[in-house]
Amino acid sequence: MSAALLEADNIVHFLGHGAGRVQVLKGVSLSLRGGELVLLMGPSGSGKTTLLSIMGCLMSPAEGTVRVAGQSIAEADAEMLAKLRRDRIGFIFQSYHLFPTLTAEENIQLALDVRGERSRSAKKAARDVLATVGLAHKRRSFPLELSGGEQQRIAVARAIVGKPSAILADEPTGALDAENGQAIMRLLADIAKDPSRAVLVVTHDPRTLPFADRIVHIEDGRIVREETANPARKVANS
């Protein structure tokens, strides 16, 4: 099996303050290895998104260790975490979070621009990835001119254009119909075929199950079950 690209070890985390303080993660460990698509499933409030935020270096855990490519991020400050995110992690959000004043192509370029990549090759990379998600013909369209499925495909393109080793997706199919949801999951499953990359999908959506290599169930801040998908069931890899 490939080495872990992203690891969370015995993570404990709290949200809120004072009397409203709640322990949302109670010693969670999860690793993400190259070439796999992992689904993180659980009911609302189970701690899925908090775990995704911590594994995505968006927040630091109260206790426990997060390692990116084997390196602990415990000592990293906000700017170092931002650098880790831009170099190694791609995000996909349920509500896309595209920039409404930028075109599809510019939204993708932005992920390279924040890394200081502004050459012609960066522009070409944005166009190539736009073609990969099947939207080359929409490169000049603004997000409001695109359907939900198209916007999410642009978001996927933005997440992968910098070739991060880990893609973290929060309910990527949550706002999409069945057809578009399948298309997005197919794209993510394709990315996860690359042994140097892995995809972690936080989801409630049972339609995503056929695409998973591994399914991790989380409840009340604890991982309660982990399943390895039956290869025969995987439509994306077929």
Binding site: G56, R85, R86, G90, F93, H97, F99, A111, V114, R158
Partner: peptide, 15 residues
């Protein structure tokens, strides 16, 4: 929201 997205995708504060 857009600035938070920029930050989430790894934009340096200076950007």
């Amino acid at each position: 929201n857009e600035f938070a997205t920029l930050r989430a995708i790894g934009s340096p504060g200076r950007y």
